[in-house]
Design a protein around this nucleic acid. Structure first.
Length: 620
DNA sequence: CATGAAAGCGCC
DNA sequence: AAAGGGCGCTTTCATG
């Protein structure tokens, strides 16, 4: 049965169905994708085999309806969006949802797509082809004041298949032993919805200042660089200016320009135009510049440039230019455009399952890659009356590595407050703890991470600029010094290679393509080695993601402070919240306790630890 | 002119 | 042959 609801008196049948149904298919149609400014057209519900379309242009008590629905499990496709719309329009955050889009990603994490459309899933699970043409009419015709019968009928289609899709997905996820992960991800949806809706406040004036400085520094460094370059070119080595343009890989766009340049003899006198045309952001041109100056670079990446730093002072300024230019472009005007016109806040997107490891990704803007420079981070400020509470796990992944592998030396170190990087240094350099030098500790820190990432001796030699024999020797000592870790890592990787998936302690899976045929043996080796690296890394990184997500859910669900505590964002092993200033310490203690409480069960004897700060701004 | 890949680099 | 895991953003460059 299909019915349209335009006023409260038409709700009778719906109320009847609600009294006997716990699970409701749910979808909304709006005028656009911005959940804050969009107009809500319809709410579609599917329950007890009946479809209801609420015409929100006519129906008044939407908040009342949402309160009724808050007692149910709402099933939707990308339901984070619908959740945000309802939160923004009614203030009601539906607490219990199931998202068919996210669940599908979980089923095929690593080998599947990042997004599945509803059409795809309806086709796959129900064998039905959905027509999506009418949907466009909702947001392509501008501001609608009345909905046509066709539009209302269309809106009804989407919600009818959600139950079936969910049932099938649950069968799959049960067989994969991912039910705890499914539960976690679904409980996380309202948390993320609320977080995105909350957004974060930016100190725009200060940001503008930093922007200006970066722009200026980029400009002056660019001039300096060009001086250095064009003072040193041997102009007599080229017949015409065109030859020099070619040598520098500077594109000459038009035929006219080309002919003009070919007529000009090569000379410093004509350098003005050349200066303007040289693009320091072009790797291709830069590489040619160095070649002309007598330095052959494999690439112009930072790693290579640092290798050649001693050979030319140009490189020092180029690296500086890159730094300033990065700040000016990525953290300049474009960032300010992300400030929402209506709320005045930045509402980044946080995607729960974009990363194959289960980590969050962030975009529009990416809050997880803001420069770790206090000047910039201090631009993100707490709302009036609030303080910013920044909490991060101390060595989340290293602790997990110790606990998961059961490496006794890790455990002892954490129990006795011994710095892990110093310990590793003492292990690989075979010196007592109190004789470890700063350099040794620095290298050891790299080794600790390198092992989690599955680095080879080649990679280590390359990254630390040391002979391969040395790198191999240190790696040998690492594994000899941490025998349990070495043994367990190998064992886990064998299992991953055999099963073609890896699993975190919570049960989160990352699947790998099951290739059986290879054209040659190095391709086969590459495939297996890569799978072992990614798989072991998933085990650790994914476990870290599980824990941060568990903490977010716990903070949200057990929050005793109401609007006095708002989650702002996760940054992998860090959680940033706004807390009402009068309960700052209590709020901080609560957050830290939640974080440690969810971490400890995964750590055995290793203690969970999180550090925190209370400031008016984001800090680190 | 549009689109997508690659380079480079920011973060954990 | 490549040479440490996971991302997103900006710019350049090649292709259609």
């Amino acid at each position: 049965m299909f019915s349209i609801i335009t006023n409260i008196h038409e709700m009778g049948p719906l109320l009847g169905d609600l009294s006997i149904s716990d699970i409701v298919g749910f979808d909304v149609e709006t005028s656009g994708l911005d959940w804050i400014t969009c107009k809500l057209y319809t709410i579609q519900l599917y329950l007890n085999d009946n479809t209801y379309v609420v015409d929100c242009l006519k129906f008044g008590p939407i908040k009342y309806l949402m309160e009724l629905l808050s007692a149910k499990k709402l099933v939707g496709h990308n339901i984070k969006y619908d959740t945000k719309v309802m939160l923004a329009k009614t203030g009601v955050l539906v607490p219990d949802v199931y998202d068919t889009m996210l669940a599908e990603v979980l089923c095929y994490q690593g080998i599947g797509k990042k997004f599945y459309s509803l059409q795809e899933l309806v086709d796959k699970y129900c064998g039905v082809t959905l027509d999506k043409e009418v949907r466009k009419s909702f947001y392509e015709l501008g501001d609608l004041t009345e909905l046509t019968q066709e539009q209302l009928m269309y809106a009804a289609h989407d919600v009818q298949y959600l139950h079936v899709i969910r049932d099938q997905q649950i069968i799959m996820l049960e067989s994969q032993k991912q039910m705890r992960v499914l539960d976690l991800e679904m409980r996380l949806v309202p948390v993320v919805a609320e977080m995105e809706n909350t957004g974060i406040l930016l100190n725009i004036e200060r940001w503008r200042e930093l922007m200006g400085t970066a722009l200026q520094e980029a400009q002056s460094t660019s001039e300096l660089l060009k001086n250095l370059i064009f003072d040193r070119i041997n102009y007599s080595a080229y017949a015409t200016m065109f030859d020099l343009y070619t040598a520098l890989s500077i594109p000459v766009k038009t035929k006219r320009d080309k002919e003009a340049l070919q007529k000009l003899p090569c000379s410093f006198n004509y350098v003005a135009q050349l200066r303007r045309d040289l693009n320091l952001s072009s790797p291709k041109q830069l590489q040619s510049v160095f070649k002309v100056l007598g330095i052959n670079l494999e690439s112009t990446g930072e790693k290579i440039l640092k290798e050649y730093q001693g050979e030319d002072e140009l490189i020092k300024y180029l690296l500086l230019y890159r730094e300033y230019n990065k700040k000016a472009s990525s953290f300049g005007e474009s960032f300010l455009e992300k400030v929402h016109q209506v709320t005045g806040r930045i509402h980044s997107e946080f995607n729960q399952l974009m990363a194959d490891t289960g980590r969050f990704s962030s975009s529009n803007p990416n809050m997880q890659q803001i420069v770790r420079d206090s000047d910039y981070r201090h631009c993100f400020i707490a709302s009036p009356g609030y303080v910013m509470v920044t909490c991060d796990y101390s060595q989340q992944e290293l602790r997990l590595a110790g606990a998961i592998t059961g490496e006794e030396k890790f455990i002892e170190a954490y129990l006795n407050n011994i710095d892990m990087h110093t310990l590793t240094a003492s292990v690989i350099y075979d010196v007592p703890l109190d004789e470890v030098t700063r350099e040794q500790r620095q290298i050891a820190k790299g080794y600790n991470f390198a092992v989690l990432y599955g680095s080879t001796e080649y990679g280590l030699a390359y990254n630390f600029q040391m002979p391969i024999e040395h790198a191999r020797d240190l790696l040998d000592k690492f594994y000899k010094g941490y025998p349990r870790l070495a043994e367990f890592k190998n064992l886990m990787e064998d299992g991953i290679q055999a099963r073609k998936y890896s699993s975190t302690p919570l049960g989160r899976k990352r699947f790998f393509e099951d290739k059986k045929f290879f054209s040659d043996s190095w391709k086969m080796n590459n495939y297996f080695n890569s799978m072992r690296r990614q798989g072991f890394n998933h085990l650790i990184q994914g476990a870290g993601a599980d824990i941060t997500k568990l903490a977010l859910v716990k903070i949200h669900e057990e929050n005793p402070f109401g609007d006095g505590l708002r989650i702002i964002m996760p940054v992998h092993d860090e959680i940033v919240c706004e807390v009402s200033a009068d309960i700052a310490e209590k709020g901080r203690d609560f957050i830290v306790k939640c974080m440690c409480d969810v971490f400890q069960p995964f750590l055995g004897r290793i203690p969970a630890e999180a550090s925190s700060s209370i400031e008016l701004t984001w800090s680190k």
